[in-house]
């Protein structure tokens, strides 16, 4: 089967800083890939390339069969097929939870209000907070905000979901409620790229773990192999640091 996401010899610089170095990588449809690595390793930049929030300087990225690095690519089409969840939630503070979820279907797809609202309520139910529809983001806990953000991304019925450290800004007691939603999503067959330090999640849910350092993919393996016997020194070092506490 054709890959859902393919990186071919991708290079990216921020000024003089070489942030992605010859990255070649494929993600199969329905696959859950966890990307980990020390801070500054390029893992966030990597997934931000998938929905063209970041542009690359050389190489090619193919998403769902379309080259997104060609000048003729349709940005809106790409971004409605690829949902993204951010570390800082990024709910729109002047809209209720429900309005946040309804915005893109109504404005990008021109969905009628009733349909958008029905979908939005169903999604709030799916992420476990149907009673928070009328709340503004400021009146939701971090975990609830992130679950609304996931529902908002799902409202466009994307084929791929990107998660950029979705639990890093959360208090510890709220991390699990978000991970549970992500686990359900993974079980439903969603193609996912997840940047996270939650190694428990990686172990339980991921089909593959990718370890990055210095803008390069250093190691990729199934979680069992990766955690039991990491091949490179750098991944061993990284794991010893984050698993020791």
């Amino acid at each position: 089967m054709a890959a859902a996401i393919e990186f071919r010899q991708v290079n990216k610089w921020f000024g003089k800083l070489h942030v992605l170095v010859d990255v070649t990588l494929g993600v199969a449809p329905g696959e859950v890939v966890v990307v980990c690595g020390p801070s500054g390793s390029g893992k966030s930049t990597l997934i931000r390339c998938v929905n063209a929030l970041e542009r690359i300087q050389s190489g090619e990225i193919v998403v769902l069969g379309d080259s997104i690095t060609s000048p003729r690519m349709n940005l809106t089409r790409l971004r409605t097929q690829v949902g993204m969840v951010f570390q800082s939630f990024n709910l729109f503070p002047h809209m209720t939870a429900l309005e946040n979820i309804m915005l893109a279907p109504m404005k990008v797809r021109n969905a009628p209000r009733e349909d958008a609202e029905k979908t939005a309520r169903a999604l709030l139910l799916r992420v476990g907070i149907p009673d928070k529809a009328g709340n503004y983001p400021a009146n939701l806990s971090g975990g609830q905000q992130q679950r609304v953000a996931i529902a908002r991304a799902l409202a466009m019925q994307p084929k791929i979901m990107l998660f950029d450290e979705p639990t890093s800004a959360l208090d510890p007691e709220m991390i699990n409620e978000v991970l549970e939603v992500m686990t359900d999503l993974a079980k439903s067959g969603m193609t996912m790229m997840v940047v996270t330090h939650e190694m428990g999640f990686a172990r339980r849910v991921a089909h593959r773990v990718i370890f990055m350092d210095g803008g390069q993919v250093i190691e990729e393996a199934d979680p069992e192999t990766f955690f039991a016997s990491p091949k490179s020194d750098r991944s061993r070092q990284f794991l010893s640091k984050i698993l020791s506490h």
């Binding site: 929905n51 929030l53 809106t76 971004r79 409605t80 690829v82 949902g83 993204m84 951010f86 800082s88 990024n90 729109f92 915005l103 893109a104 404005k107 990008v108 953000a149 908002r152 991304a153 466009m156």
Partner: peptide
């Protein structure tokens, strides 16, 4: 925060929207 803009375009809104 710039991320509000990113979240907007990431869901398919145009820059104008």
């Amino acid at each position: 925060p710039r991320t509000q803009f990113e979240a907007s375009v990431a869901m398919g809104l145009s820059v104008w929207q």
